[in-house]
């Protein structure tokens, strides 16, 4: 379980969520995104292709980093949500707040 960071096409910062995004590790994601913003990165993708589940604290962390990125003049995309993960965003209407694509490749092409 954890997060891995890489560079995608066009210099986009890609964060892969391996395992769970929950109350116990959400701060790690927030710190990772803040560090990227501090380095001047402004285009970020969080990919959930290898994610088991997300709890409401994890959703809240995504809302927080979305705000920070927006305030810094950047853009955030989410990708790789399976049907169960996507249902969490739909139930909470967070699918209206985030730019979500099916695959990371589609997300990278959309910046």
């Amino acid at each position: 379980m954890g997060f891995s960071e890489s560079k995608g096409a066009g210099g986009v910062t890609v964060v892969q969520v391996d395992g769970q995004l929950i109350i116990g590790n959400r701060q790690e994601l927030k710190d990772l995104v803040q560090a990227a913003l501090d380095r001047g990165e402004r285009r970020l993708l969080v990919d959930f292709s290898r994610t088991g589940y997300i709890d409401s604290s994890g959703l809240g962390a995504l809302v927080s980093i979305s705000k920070r990125i927006r305030e810094a003049g950047g853009e955030l995309r989410l990708s790789g949500l399976n049907d169960d993960l996507r249902s969490l965003f739909e139930l909470t209407k967070l699918d209206t707040l985030f730019a979500i694509t099916e695959t990371p490749e589609q997300a990278l092409a959309s910046f």
Binding site: D55, S56, S57, G60, V63, S64, L88, L91, L97
Partner: peptide, 22 residues
């Protein structure tokens, strides 16, 4: 319920709602 438009930007308040839905 955490679904009002002004609440969407809140980082908290979705836990019990999700339990009830799932």
């Amino acid at each position: 319920e955490p679904l009002r438009p002004e609440q969407l930007d809140e980082a908290q308040g979705r836990g019990l709602f999700l339990i009830r839905k799932l």
